[in-house]
Simulated assay, not measured.
Amino acid sequence: MQIIKSIPIFILAGLCEIGGGYLIWLWLKEDKPIWYGLIGALILAFYGVVATLQTASFARVYATYGGVFIVMSLLWSMKFDNYSPDKYDIIGALIALLGVCIIYYAPRN
Rank of each mutant, 00 (worst) to 15 (best):
Y105I: 01
I24C: 05
L75G: 03
L15D: 02
L98A: 15
I11D: 04
A96L: 07
A13V: 01
S6P: 01
G37Y: 01
I43P: 04
P107G: 03
R60G: 00
I4Q: 01
P85H: 09
S6A: 14
G67R: 11
D89E: 03
V61G: 00
I34N: 04
L15I: 15
L98M: 14
E30C: 08
G19F: 09
Y104F: 14
A56G: 00
A106Y: 14
M78W: 14
S77N: 13
M1I: 04
L38G: 04
I7Y: 11
F69V: 15
I43R: 09
G40I: 05
D86L: 06
L94Q: 10
K32A: 12
Y105L: 12
G14P: 07
A51G: 00
G14D: 10
A56E: 15
A45L: 13
Y104L: 13
A45W: 07
L15F: 15
G99Y: 07
A13S: 12
W25Q: 06
R108I: 06
R60S: 02
L97Q: 10
V100I: 13
D89S: 01
L98K: 03
R108S: 09
S84M: 07
Y22S: 06
K5H: 08
R108H: 06
L94F: 14
A96V: 08
Y88N: 12
K5Y: 13
I9D: 03
L38F: 13
T64A: 13
S57L: 02
K79Y: 14
A96D: 03
F46P: 00
Y83K: 08
Y65R: 03
W35P: 02
L74H: 02
K5W: 05
A106V: 08
I4Y: 13
A63E: 02
K87S: 10
D89T: 01
L75S: 08
Y36H: 05
A93P: 09
Y105V: 02
G40L: 02
V61D: 01
Y36N: 03
Y88K: 11
A41R: 02
D31P: 00
L97N: 12
L75Q: 04
W35M: 06
